[in-house]
């Protein structure tokens, strides 16, 4: 498993990196932790002509609390996110990604930019109503999670843009759970459910991992529960699979995934409520 040849640069600043990315054209790619891209290159399913390595962009690492929320640098690793318990469900879910070695290397920005709805952070970002900050030749823009994920491995990020930051609102008063159903601990989720409950069900958020081409909010469940109590969870969870069209795969048929979504939604909400 040998990656194809590519040109390489490791710029010292975000501006230089963006310049290199633009000059490299559509086959140029950013390299963060590389844990989505390098496996594809080794399989020769990806063959970028130029890799712009972000490793020297140290401004993009770290977590800070600002303006009632958190700003997480794009290069912050899953391990670092998982250790920042103040991030709540994001920390909890990050600790469930793959294994320690992968978490030590994989980054939150890289994972989101890859746009794989089977990975865990997209559903978390969606449930938390977070956003990403993208910089490109025309400056910086903030893209809400609802806009960011567009289809299988497709995001709103332009070829010449870089995620610099991930923004999560502070979720004071929210309780949460992330139920990740896997065969083995290190696997991708067959289905994942991110559930968040504020106070006594004053507000409820539920989002799915791997139930479609993008992470999906379970609006029917949320509506059925909002303002209700724990007693309504079982009934509300029955609506979990509404409007989903999950892809079948080796480990789960579409029917089974819809069933899992209902069961895991109930369990996640019960756990969140009991937390």
């Amino acid at each position: 498993m040998i990656p194809p040849e590519f040109e390489y640069t490791a710029p010292e600043s975000v501006d230089e990196a963006l310049q290199a990315l633009t000059q490299g054209g559509e086959d140029a790619k950013l390299l963060a932790g590389g844990h989505s891209l390098i496996p594809l290159m080794k399989m020769r399913l990806a063959a970028p002509s130029l890799l712009v390595d972000m490793r020297k962009l140290s401004d993009l690492r770290g977590i800070e609390r600002a303006n009632g929320g958190f700003r997480i640098g794009a290069l912050t690793t899953h391990a670092q996110v998982s250790q920042a318990s103040e991030l709540g469900v994001a920390a909890h879910a990050a600790g469930k990604i793959a294994d320690q070695q992968v978490r030590n290397r994989g980054t939150i920005g890289g994972s989101l930019a890859h746009g794989d709805s089977a990975s865990d952070m997209p559903a978390v970002l969606l449930a938390a109503e977070g956003s990403v900050v993208a910089r490109g030749p025309n400056g910086e823009r903030e893209i809400a999670a609802t806009e960011f994920f567009q289809d299988f491995f497709e995001t709103a990020l332009a070829d010449d843009e870089m995620i610099t930051e991930v923004r999560l609102p502070a979720m004071d008063g929210w309780k949460f759970a992330y139920e990740k159903f896997t065969r083995r601990a290190e696997d991708w989720a067959m289905v994942g459910v991110c559930a968040m409950v504020r106070g006594d069900f004053e507000d409820v958020r539920v989002a799915f991992t791997n139930m479609g081409g993008t992470p999906i909010r379970a609006s029917a469940v949320e509506e059925a529960l909002r303002g209700q109590g724990r007693g309504a969870i079982e009934q509300a969870a029955q609506a979990a699979a509404e409007g989903t069209d999950p892809p079948g795969d080796l480990n789960a048929t579409a029917d089974y995934k819809r069933h899992l979504a209902r069961v895991l939604t109930r369990r996640a909400l019960e756990k969140a409520a009991a937390a």
């Binding site: 892809p247 079948g248 795969d249 080796l250 789960a252 048929t253 579409a254 029917d255 089974y256």
Partner: peptide, 11 residues
């Protein structure tokens, strides 16, 4: 799914 391949084939 006896062959292990679910409906719609494998990805």
């Amino acid at each position: 799914s006896e062959q292990g391949v679910p409906e719609g084939g494998a990805q």
